[in-house]
């Protein structure tokens, strides 16, 4: 019972530690900028000196490494505790794999092709999910709230779309796919242009969607918290519940965005390797 209260207090402390930093510094814009930007430091604990990241790496890169480390740890823990009746973290891991397999990859790609691609989409989903959720730990940062990270992942999907499409259909047929059948040439060229640019736009939107959702969510949380310092301490009566609500919403958004990114990537890659009617 006592441990439970200590855990609750710890959680509240962690959630509002940026406020504590703010209270310490008294400069709203500087703290906001530091909290959501890709600096070279992390405020692990308020009232303690800021931690300088080693080797001059940026905070978002550090969060990417942390995500990768967590995923690898989870998988190797799962591998070490393999059993026909899974327990503990293995249940979580297998459910994640099962979710990606049954709700994303197999319905879109089919079982035969899906089995080959399952590790890729599983890793992508878990990488995004971990990055999204890690940012919700106060003082940590969201790597997916940086457009360079999401663009890199979207660019990887674009490259895969081209390479898979060309490999499975051949260069000519892949590009011929952009031309609609049975229309006159000028319209065909126009549609092909739209389709081709659409492919780039779709992947760009993939990147922007993830970035904007994660960035906006964190911005909303900080904005609510800062009302306390901008308006009055009494604003906390409204600001704190709103912050908690937005925080919980962000957990759901983190899951949904990882799902949407993985699902759309799977659709784009599958579409690239199939002949359009």
């Amino acid at each position: 019972m006592k441990n439970k209260y200590i855990a609750y207090l710890g959680l509240i402390y962690l959630l509002f530690s940026p406020v504590a930093v703010l209270a310490q510094e008294g400069n709203v814009s500087a703290v906001l900028s530091r909290e959501i930007s890709n600096g070279k430091t992390l405020d692990i604990f308020p009232f303690l000196p800021t931690v300088q990241l080693p080797l001059g790496i940026s905070a978002h890169f550090f969060m990417l490494l942390l995500s990768a480390g967590l995923i690898l740890s989870l998988f190797f823990y799962g591998k070490r505790h393999l059993a026909l009746k899974p327990r503990g973290l293995l249940v979580v891991l297998e459910n994640m794999i099962g979710f990606v397999q049954e709700d994303i990859v197999f319905p879109i790609m089919g079982e035969a092709k899906g089995e080959k691609w399952l590790p890729f989409f599983c890793t992508l989903f878990l990488f995004l999910l971990t990055s999204n959720l890690l940012g919700l730990i106060p003082c940590f940062k969201t790597a997916t709230g940086n457009i360079n990270v999401t663009s890199a992942l979207a660019a990887m999907i674009l490259i895969l779309v081209f390479s898979v499409g060309i490999k499975s259909l051949g260069t000519f047929r892949f590009f011929k796919n952009f031309f609609p059948a049975g229309v006159i040439l000028p319209i065909g060229i126009f549609v092909a242009f739209l389709e081709f640019t659409g492919l780039f736009l779709k992947t760009a939107i993939l990147s922007l969607r993830l970035f904007s959702n994660m960035f906006a969510g964190h911005l909303a949380i900080f904005s609510f918290l800062m009302l306390i310092f901008i308006l009055s301490p009494m604003a906390g009566i409204f600001a704190v519940p709103f912050t908690v609500f937005t925080y919980l919403l962000e957990v759901i958004v983190g899951f949904i965005q990882a799902f949407v990114f993985t699902l759309l990537s799977c659709i784009f890659i599958t579409m690239a390797s199939s002949v359009h009617e």
Binding site: N38, F61, L64, L124, F127, N146, N148, A152, L153, M156
Partner: peptide, 15 residues
């Protein structure tokens, strides 16, 4: 930040 983009690929690729 091309550096971060490349590192994203590298980290994801290695993972």
């Amino acid at each position: 930040d091309p550096g971060l983009a490349i590192w994203t690929w590298i980290v994801f690729g290695i993972t």
